[in-house]
């Protein structure tokens, strides 16, 4: 692991990697869907006149979508051991070859 220009890379145990993948994807999907639902409700599916838009609700929707994306992006830094981030850096030796 280390900080290079491609971003931080944290190696975690396999079981933890599964949890990270499952729960962050779940959270991301649910919050993005809820975000769109909230946005739709606030703007009456995009048909409301600008002054009728429920600003707080719309902001909540955008926030939920952003949060979902953020969690998904953040979770991508965790990797199981042996998973190289890109093919070029796959030169490290391994003990099962």
């Amino acid at each position: 692991m280390g900080d290079d220009e491609r971003g931080r890379d944290v190696v975690v145990p396999d079981r933890l990697y599964k949890s990270v993948t499952v729960f962050s994807t779940l959270f991301a999907v649910v919050s993005v869907v809820l975000g769109f639902v909230a946005l739709d409700t606030a703007t009456n599916a995009g048909r409301a006149a600008p002054e009728d838009v429920n600003v707080a609700f719309a902001a909540l929707g955008v926030g939920l979508i952003a949060a979902g994306g953020l969690v998904y992006a953040f979770s991508s830094r965790f990797r199981a051991s042996g998973m190289a981030k890109d093919k070029d850096s796959g030169d490290e030796p391994s003990d099962n070859g």
């Binding site: 990797r79 199981a80 042996g82 998973m83 190289a84 981030k85 093919k87 796959g90 490290e92 030796p93 391994s94 099962n96 070859g97």
Partner: peptide, 17 residues
């Protein structure tokens, strides 16, 4: 002797999995 393909398969990320 493992071939290069095999070595590659066994050493890197997803292909190792």
């Amino acid at each position: 002797t493992p071939t290069w393909r095999e070595r590659k398969e066994r050493t890197t990320g997803l292909s190792r999995l």
